[in-house]
Amino acid sequence: MKLNIQNETSRLRAVILGTAESNGPQPTIEDAYDPKSIQHIKAGTYPIEEDMVKEMDAVVKVFEKYDVKVFRPKVIEDYNQIFSRDIAFVIEDKLIKANILPDREREYEAIQHVIKQIDDDKVILLPEECHVEGGDVMPWNDYIFIGTYSGEDYSDYITARTNMDAVIAIQELFPDKTVKAFELRKSNTDPKENALHLDCCFQPIGKGKAILHKNGFLIEKEYEWLVDFFGKENIFEITKDEMYNMNSNVFSISEDVIISERNFTRLNTWLRENGFTVEEVPYAEIAKQEGLLRCSTMPLIRD
């Protein structure tokens, strides 16, 4: 398989979509990885497997409609394998394995049937000190946007997933690209003050537009850089509640086709007004784990 990912919006041809099958029991609060999951565990509203399987099936139907080749992970019994973006990501013709939380190593093993189809020299393992997850990494033509956290208290945050060592390593891997890092706001306890990944507060979409949430960025100047880069008139600024509900975590099939959650009324209206075709799916149960459509997809080939 010849990988090709230059950006977030070129026509999608092949993708890995996670799976909610055999998702396992509800985690304990101690085992949860993010504040939103903890909130739903405490409230008794944590999503159940049957609902999440249905939500992911709806996404498969959209991919089939657009003739996209869909790979799924091998199902591991009683194991959360929804968020395939966390475990690896593709830039150009290289698949980079994410150095993820150790408990999640088996998720990578479950996509070996796909990785075996890629030339060995195109599968990159970063040094151990490089922490990175795919939700923080966005190829955007000549740029690679990366969400990070470089505070001295990095190790105190279960929500800090990508460090500066990884940013430097990715710049070295792609010397012809401009790597632009953004410091993200982190909280272990308040999901409305936590940008788990860059795609939880920002995503470029087709037609030169972007979805953005100012409070997700620790440094205002970095947020302003994005506003200048895309142009204020091309940005859909989401509220704190919309960020909490993952409005920036939609997924582009092409420059003008976007899969979005059906409850994102304000966003979906704006997208249609700006000439996008919006394929609405139910994904509100999966969103309770602080991840949505971009988090659960790993694009392999775009035109």
Rank of each mutant, 00 (worst) to 15 (best):
E255W: 01
E224S: 15
G231R: 09
V227W: 12
E242D: 06
E237C: 14
M246Q: 13
N245K: 03
F251T: 02
I253D: 00
N249G: 01
N234D: 02
E222C: 12
S254M: 02
I253V: 13
E237W: 00
F251C: 11
N245C: 02
I258N: 02
E222P: 11
E255M: 04
F236C: 07
K232Q: 14
K240S: 12
V227F: 13
S254W: 02
L226W: 05
I258R: 14
V250I: 09
E255A: 07
K240H: 00
K232F: 05
V250H: 04
I259P: 03
E233H: 12
W225N: 08
S254G: 10
E237L: 15
I258P: 04
E237T: 09
K240A: 13
F236E: 08
S252W: 04
S252N: 13
N249H: 02
Y223K: 10
M243A: 14
K232V: 10
F229T: 05
E233S: 15
V250K: 05
G231L: 12
K240Y: 00
N247D: 13
F230T: 01
E242G: 05
F230L: 08
E224H: 13
E255S: 06
N245S: 00
D241Y: 00
M243S: 14
N234T: 06
I253G: 11
E261I: 00
D228Y: 08
V257G: 01
M243H: 11
I253R: 04
E237P: 07
T239L: 02
S254V: 04
M243R: 09
I258Y: 11
I238H: 09
V227S: 14
F229E: 14
K232M: 10
I258Q: 03
N234L: 10
E261D: 06
G231I: 10
N245E: 08
E237H: 13
E222R: 11
E233R: 09
G231E: 08
D228S: 14
I259Y: 05
G231A: 02
Y223Q: 14
M246G: 01
V250D: 07
I259W: 04
V227A: 15
